[in-house]
Nucleic acid binder design. Structure first.
Length: 558
DNA sequence: GGCCTATACATGTCATTTGG
DNA sequence: CCAAATGACATGTATAGGCC
């Protein structure tokens, strides 16, 4: 038996599985895969659930290989109404065949009901399904899984076995020529695999594989074609405006399913996009569904279909209600991004030499006071616990594969506003002494020329209102993002220096800052800060509470 | 010498993962 | 669960090399 790239052990296991189903392994094996690129599974191969686990985690991640949960597969096929009137189903990243196998079962049932069995049924099924994948071993398993799922038909067919349309593909360029009318695409493209280069001719020009797959699929679909794709939710509302524009211009969004963390062991959240090829442009209603733990879908009470078109970078927060958008936009009115008034950076990143760099006691003249832990930064107050960073670039032995990022000493040593990256609210303090923060903090330096007094920034960041805004825009509890990123902070709306309301509120904000800095941060002071910032951002008291409720609801769902 | 380009090195950021 | 930590890599900057 020609092994090709498939490990012998796996072949033997496949042969046994087929025999036990009464299928002659010789008719099926060695499989359609003969790309001899030396790709081999390590460890014991298993026919379904075990194959991916047998691969090194790094390579799985690199290629974005994850099993799609069965319930999600069935729902995707339901959304497509497969088989329905479709002639063909294509999965451009079929892996071990989750979608194709489920689709094949449905076809078999349908054919059986109309009296088609055995070889003819197999031929019809194999002719209606197409799969591609980078991993030849996965493709082999896909075929075995298909055969096993159709065991009855195989037994009936005897030697009349079909040719399956399963082809090795390059992850870079899923070779989807123009697809024939009557074609639907379903699948879970690899996420997060960084393409080595931007694919030539790509509009989206993103190196995130899920973006490229989405573009390639939409380009290949014929008018009237459909695709239902399982994608990372970041595509909808993080830094991928171009794929959003591409989708809006090349497809009609029929449904968006918010599937949450549906993949065991994966902390990214999934969305299901149901797209009809062609004819973008119109703002027809999008159905938004949220998956529930019991496997059903529900309509969120106040989702805002279509409003993403008006968002500057087309962000589509499927759960953002009309009300939330209104409050958000009100807060942004006449405000400027924090990044235009302050330089924002990450603190010292100790890389892989933490122990060498961050020390508990004074190490000598290269030592600088280090702010490391959460307790050292409370609202308005910095309490240095006495640790040091050895600020000496010579410590990093690059030849020993050491790395670290010491940042810029003049900036670190100057007065600045430190912001905690973790926690369920924004926390900031004005660092007058020039302490050196670790990368558990971000810091804001006033831009020369046009800025705000750091005391005011610290007061605004410590207010619930800005924290709630942040959580509304980037829900962060139990999310893929464990930290506040630079971009989150840079995007926060701040009153411009010449803002008349700020002029008016300034003295009170300074007073609050003084109290806070003096350790007199108490509920009444906090209350007056809420009052003041609410007014500054054009929110009434009830509206500020509403903002709070909405943002918490968004965060807690996740 | 002046300008442009390639490369190496340094800095800065991301996207989780780890571990208490 | 969540603060702290980490590996990878993208971006930025300096320098060397090539060409006129």
């Amino acid at each position: 038996m020609n092994q090709g790239p498939v490990p012998g052990e796996l072949l033997r296991e496949a042969a046994t599985a087929l025999q036990s189903r009464g299928i002659d392994p010789g008719l099926v094996l060695p499989g359609p895969v003969d790309r001899a690129d030396g790709q081999r599974a390590t460890g014991p191969g298993r026919l379904d659930g075990g194959y991916l686990e047998s691969l090194p985690l790094a390579s799985r991640r690199e290629r974005g290989q994850y099993y799609t949960p069965a319930w999600l597969v069935e729902d995707v096929l339901d959304w497509l109404d497969w088989p329905g009137e479709w002639k063909q189903l294509v999965d451009p990243s079929c892996g071990t065949g989750a979608f194709l196998v489920a689709a094949a079962r449905r076809l078999a049932t349908q054919l059986e009901a109309s009296g088609v069995t055995g070889g003819p049924a197999l031929a019809r099924i194999a002719g209606s399904l197409r799969g591609y994948d980078v991993d030849p071993v996965a493709l082999f398993l896909c075929k075995v899984n298909l055969v096993c799922a159709l065991e009855k038909l195989y037994r009936q067919a005897g030697s009349q076995v079909p040719q399956w349309q399963l082809q090795p593909a390059d992850v870079l360029y899923p070779r989807l020529g123009p697809l024939a009318p009557g074609t639907a695409v379903a699948g879970n493209p690899p996420w997060g695999a960084r393409l080595p280069e931007v694919p030539p001719g790509s509009y989206v020009s993103e190196r995130e594989s899920a973006c490229w797959f989405t573009e390639a699929i939409l380009r290949a679909l014929p008018p009237g074609g459909r695709c239902v794709l399982v994608l990372p939710d970041i595509i909808l509302f993080k830094h991928y405006p171009r794929i959003r524009r591409f989708i809006l211009e090349h497809a009609q969004i029929l449904r968006v399913g918010v599937a949450g963390r549906s993949f065991p062991g994966v902390s990214m959240e999934a969305v299901v996009l149901d797209l009809a090829a062609g004819g973008g442009g119109s703002d027809s209603p999008v159905e938004i569904l949220v998956s529930l733990p019991d496997g059903t879908w529900t309509r969120p009470p106040a989702a805002l279909p279509g409003a993403f078109r008006s968002h500057p970078s087309l962000k589509f927060n499927a759960l953002m209600s009309e009300r939330a958008v209104a409050l958000k936009e009100r807060m942004e009115q006449d405000k400027v991004p924090l990044g235009t008034l302050f330089v924002v950076r990450e603190g010292i990143h100790s890389g892989n030499i933490r122990h060498k760099l961050f020390v508990p006691a004074y190490p000598g003249p290269e030592g600088r006071p280090l702010i490391l832990g959460r307790r050292e930064l409370r609202p308005f107050v910095l309490t240095w616990e006495g640790r040091y960073v050895r600020y000496d670039p010579g410590l990093v032995r690059r030849s020993d594969r050491e790395y670290a990022s010491l940042g810029r000493e003049p900036e670190l040593a100057s007065a600045k506003v430190l912001v905690r990256r973790t926690g369920d609210r924004l926390t900031a303090a004005y660092d007058r002494r020039g302490l050196f923060p670790s990368n558990n903090f971000l810091y804001c330096l006033p831009r020369p020329g046009r800025s705000l007094p750091p005391e005011l920034l610290a007061a605004l960041l410590n207010s619930r209102v800005l924290g709630d805004y942040l959580r509304l825009v980037h829900p962060m509890v139990n999310r893929a993002f464990a930290e506040i990123k630079l971009i989150h902070l840079r995007d926060l709306p701040l009153p411009a220096p010449e803002d008349p309301r700020l002029q008016q509120a300034g003295p009170d904000l300074f007073a609050i800052h003084r109290k806070g800095e003096a350790g007199l941060w108490d509920p009444p002071t906090e209350e007056s800060l809420e009052e003041l910032t609410g007014w500054l951002y054009g929110l009434t008291r009830p509206e500020a509470s509403e903002l709070r409720r909405l943002s918490l609801a968004l965060a807690q769902r996740r």
